[in-house]
Design a binder for these strands. Structure first.
Lengths: 353, 353
DNA sequence: CTGAAAGCGCTAACAT
DNA sequence: ATGTTAGCGCTTTCAG
């Protein structure tokens, strides 16, 4: 267990050459006599030398590292999925990854940005930015920024998911199965708008997909089948509002034959409630949801619109990689990648008969 | 958007002082005339200066950063939980966090260690080390190492969970409810031993808790009630072996009144199977599990032995913090923190009557 | 084919 | 109260 860090200079001394020669061996460039190469390689082995990336970064004025700012790894597996995608793709290309979770807190997000600036990261990924100002701070420090899923009005490269089409996919599936009385349980976009003052709203697009599908198939909207609660995706508590409005739907003579829940988490709660009401899924009522996080583990396994979580992370990294490529490829500007969802059919949806 | 990075020297130039004075202002130490302080602070503002942590680290020979090597953020939420604990505690104390996921692959783990050595991290956390050699490599580079949950035979500070007592808690709960015919569904420790050649085995301890509880309460072990399959915690596929052996238990005249599943994931699969057999939980059969990851989302919400995932991560960080504290406190050596589980009672277990 | 030396930005000991 | 300077480890001309 060697306490002292061994440097290039040490290697050079042991090999009896200069550091310049050690470099040439390390990066296999320039002329080095076969003889000297041997000696140097041996010295590297013997001393157990590792390049010092800190010194290297200082010299290069490049750290080859990405800072990832996200909300929280739990309980919403969406973030863990994206984080994993970012991590895998970054390390695949030799980039280092710094990560920080901010739990929907603007001040913590700021702290994260400041930390990353000091760390001299080459790029920052906001997996859902919270404050426009913070994005601007990163930009002002000359850092390349990628915004994921809910970009601010500040134009930067970004990655988003096509939630609208995803919702259509869910509806088409239900309608193809003969369902007409389809309920929607989601989060009220108005409420979100009150909290966040910019950008697009995932929930809004899913809702719109629901509404437009009904319209397209000439199914009149039944207000009783619409539950837009204050359900948060950031905590585990079963929203009381859900049990309330769900009961209203259920006890009514003309109850829905299918429910479209806007997230897996919500669907999980719905499943629990239906169980209490002794309603069987999908025999008595079909359920479809969005995300594909908890879906495969539930009973019955849920038919759901899967989000490409890993792909989101990877796409974000690729935007960065592209930017730092030798040929800046001009098209750089404000690339926005829109990723598609796909329907995963499991056992929670059935034909109406 | 300023392209060029501004340095201390720039600030000094703008303020018309030396960098030493800028330093004194930055760190509020030493004498600085009130007048000059003002001027310097203004210059910092105006130029938008941020300290360069890379240069700082090089100078200090300390990066104040932790490298976290874990298996994978998904699908097992255990890792996400630990990772979050590590992240939160690290950033709470001003430490940077590098993270890398290795998917149970020894070579990737090695790569991670090498990367972290080059990055000059001050400490590495292995959330479940894979190879002893890799741990040794980190140690040889003079890095402080913390091993989590499944320490190798190489003695370093570590954090583990008291799985044995956790299993006892589960069993005591079931037995108190009057259950005697209790089945156990878990992973075969022998199989794990074939893959990993060191350390303790989480599954073994849980199994032992089950066995010892039976013994203590003088309940004879029924081999038919023991299912030790090759179920992996790293993938989502429902193990065929599970459905097979579970059916054997269920169809038999004398079936278990309760099942203890060694992980939430396994329990989720069991729930799906029981549903197919039209068995109601907990009316026909009780289920208890271990982890508290998926448990609250399932139907019915599972009674489970919760692992303190966040605490594990935080404890690991504290071991590091303690070590780097001014007063080395002697007791440093090979601290091992053992964390307790706690029983969370929900709706999947009922009295036998 | 190999070596000497400057400098990335910050810090701290030493001057003044 | 403020300034000068050496050097952390690595990279890259430029000489030889």
């Amino acid at each position: 267990m060697q306490r002292k860090r061994v440097t290039q200079k040490d290697v050079a001394a042991v090999a009896g050459v200069s550091t310049a020669t050690v470099m040439r061996v390390l990066y296999e460039q320039g002329y080095v006599a076969e003889e000297t190469r041997k000696v140097v390689e041996e010295a590297i082995q013997r001393t157990g030398y590792h390049v010092n990336a800190v010194a290297r970064s200082l010299r290069h004025q490049r750290t080859t590292s990405i800072g990832h700012i996200l909300h929280s790894l739990v309980p919403n597996p969406f973030f863990a999925g994206v984080a994993l995608g970012v991590e895998e793709e970054a390390s695949r290309w030799g980039w280092k990854l710094l990560m920080i979770s901010v739990r929907d807190d603007e001040r913590r997000e700021r702290l994260g940005v400041e930390t990353f600036i000091q760390q001299q990261v080459d790029a920052i990924i906001f997996t859902t930015p919270i404050s426009e100002e913070n994005v601007q701070v990163a930009l002002d420090a000359g850092i390349f920024v990628v915004q994921v899923e809910r970009p601010t009005t500040i134009p930067t490269p970004s990655v988003i998911v096509d939630n609208y089409t995803g919702a259509i996919q869910a509806m088409e599936h239900l309608i193809a199965l003969g369902h007409k009385r389809i309920a929607y349980i989601g989060i009220d976009p108005e409420l979100l708008r009150a909290q966040h003052h910019f950008g697009r709203y995932v929930e809004e697009e899913r809702l719109k997909g629901y509404l437009d599908s009904l319209h397209k198939h000439q199914i009149p909207l039944n207000k009783r089948f619409l539950d837009l609660g204050a359900h948060s995706s950031f905590n585990r508590t079963i929203p009381l509002t859900l049990s309330q409005s769900l009961r209203d739907m259920i006890v009514h003579a003309e109850r829905p034959t299918a429910i479209f829940a806007s997230t897996d988490t919500l669907a999980a709660h719905v499943l629990q409630q239906l169980h209490d009401y002794r309603l069987r899924v999908p025999d008595d009522i079909s359920i479809i949801s969005f995300d594909d996080t908890y879906a495969p583990y539930l009973t019955p396994p849920l038919t759901t619109v899967a989000q490409p979580m890993m792909e989101i992370g990877k796409a974000a990294v690729h935007l960065i990689l592209d930017h730092f490529q030798e040929e800046p490829s001009a098209l750089d500007a404000f690339q926005q990648k829109k990723l598609a969802t796909h329907l995963v059919v499991r056992s929670s949806t059935a034909s109406i008969l």
